[in-house]
Design a protein around this nucleic acid. Structure first.
Length: 425
RNA sequence: GGAGAGGUGGCUGAGUGGUUGAAAGCGCCUGACUCGAAAUCAGGUAGGAGGGUAACUUUCUCGUGGGUUCAAAUCCCACUCUCUCCGCCA
């Protein structure tokens, strides 16, 4: 959430900021009026509590002195009644206060280009060499079905649409990608590996900003306070919720593999074939907790770490910078590395690297103590490194051969145990 | 799932109705001593929300929520989590 003081002191700035994301600036007007009401009520309640306390102590003294406290006692009884009435009002207003704070999105970083939606995102650069094909490259779903390494039909039977089953070398390639990516980030980039639960509670989902606003996109366990991870960002960021670091502990860098579960509620008809948009996919995610003054430096290396995966796999990619309208609810800035898919001659999002500044840290209450003893919110960042299913799709398409086989990128051969995937039964 | 025990500050651990947001110890910070360090001595050391430029001040928080009472860390109820034993189970 945003700093309430920032909203109080610079309401116009905040209004403009959230308007760039397409949020309604009237949220800020509402917030300020609730805030005002709340402060008045707090003052009243605090005053009454103070009075009650003093009179109660008086009663104690009177009893000790052998005096009769009845008169004071009935006075306090009346005050207590008044307090409990006002407390109910305060509780109500506190709920409204929190709810509105939770529904105000983060403000874009000043360098983020203004834009309404994904059409106005900016390509910052293209990297890697696109292969010249001597044949018409096939889409990954054809390649994989021909090879017998992905089964789409039976996935529908046992689960439903937007699921898929990996078999044989398909399954092994997926496993290899996960292991290799984690090893790359732990050994080369200095991240600590975490394997978190795939189910998290509501509080965690609120902490990272998935809830309360995007509940319809999340899978919920019926009758329990549990949701399926939409991304490892949720368990890993909340790993430190409510905690206070020492300044010397920062930065903290984690890499985590989880399966990710998404309803894809608003995506009807989009990417219906293949493994690009599915309800369950594997992802390796990097998460950082850093000092505010270092967060943009850390963002840069985070992006480099994500790009490194693509570089080592020798996959052509581009970096897109999200415009204000496509940043999402919680991010202040976001870069999307996109991998080249030959069959469509298009770049497809394969990672997403964001700085949330202190927005998630406030929600999840993650702070650190400076050398001077001051408490401050950390900045949180995360980036996929990478979405494993989409990486597999990219490998299948970019590394396909005319005979239908697929060569395995150098760095993976050790993990897969072969340099070539051929048709299997 | 059944039975029992227990949740107090960074940690250990006192506290069973009235200046207790909380003794003591450890840890940490500052100062003194020291060439420096250790030891020792003195002092400081939870968080949230209001108010105040600030010093400071009011209030809330002893797992969570409710109740009793003029007054609750302390009494009552519910829930929750942890630990031990039994059962079940990958």
């Amino acid at each position: 959430m945003l700093d309430p003081n920032l909203i109080r002191e610079h309401p116009e700035y905040v209004k403009e900021g959230i308007a760039k994301k397409g949020a309604n600036p009237s949220l800020i007007v509402d917030f300020l009026s609730i805030d005002n009401e709340r402060k008045i009520l707090i003052k009243e309640v605090d005053g009454l509590r103070h009075l009650r306390r003093n009179l109660s102590e008086e009663i104690g003294l009177k009893i000790a002195n052998g005096e009769k406290p009845e008169e004071t006692r009935s006075k306090v009884r009346d005050i207590a009644k008044e307090i409990s009435d006002k407390e109910k009002l305060l509780e109500e207003i506190n709920t409204r206060f929190t709810n509105i704070l939770l529904s105000i999105p983060n403000i874009p970083f000043k360098g983020v280009p203004l834009g309404k939606d994904e059409a106005e995102n900016i390509v910052l650069g293209r990297f890697g060499k696109k292969r010249v094909f001597s044949f018409v490259p096939k889409p990954h779903w054809e390649i994989s079905e021909n090879l017998g390494i992905i089964d789409f039909k039976r996935a529908v039977k046992i689960s439903g649409p937007r699921f898929y089953i990996l078999r044989g070398m398909g399954a092994k390639l997926e496993r290899a990608l996960i292991s290799w990516m984690i090893d790359l980030h732990t050994e080369k980039h200095g991240y600590k590996e975490i394997l978190p639960p795939f189910l998290v509670n509501r509080n965690s989902m609120v902490g990272t900003g998935q809830l309360p606003k995007f509940e319809e996109d999340m899978y919920k366990i019926e009758g329990e306070d549990l949701f399926l991870d939409p991304t490892a960002e949720v368990p890993v960021t909340n790993y430190h919720s409510g905690e206070i670091f020492n300044e010397s502990d920062l930065p903290i860098k984690y890499v985590a593999f989880t399966a990710c579960f998404r309803k894809e509620a608003g995506a009807a008809g989009k990417d219906t074939r293949g493994i690009i948009r599915v309800h369950q996919f594997n992802k390796v995610e990097m998460v950082k907790f850093v000092k505010p003054e270092e967060s943009y430096k850390e963002l840069k290396t985070l992006l480099e770490n994500a790009e490194d995966v693509l570089k080592e796999l020798e996959l052509p990619y581009q970096i897109k910078m999200m415009c204000t309208g496509d940043l999402g609810f919680t991010a202040a800035i976001k870069y999307d590395p996109e991998v080249y898919m030959p069959s469509q001659d298009k770049y497809v999002e394969i990672s997403s690297v964001s700085n949330f500044e202190d927005y998630q840290a406030r929600r999840a209450n993650i702070r650190y103590r400076t050398k001077d003893g001051e408490l401050k919110y950390v900045h949180t960042l995360n980036g996929s490194g990478l979405a494993v299913g989409r990486t597999m799709a990219a490998i299948l398409e970019n590394c396909q051969q005319e005979d239908g086989s697929v060569y395995v990128p150098n760095v993976l051969q050790k993990y897969v145990g072969t340099d070539k995937i051929t048709k299997e039964v």
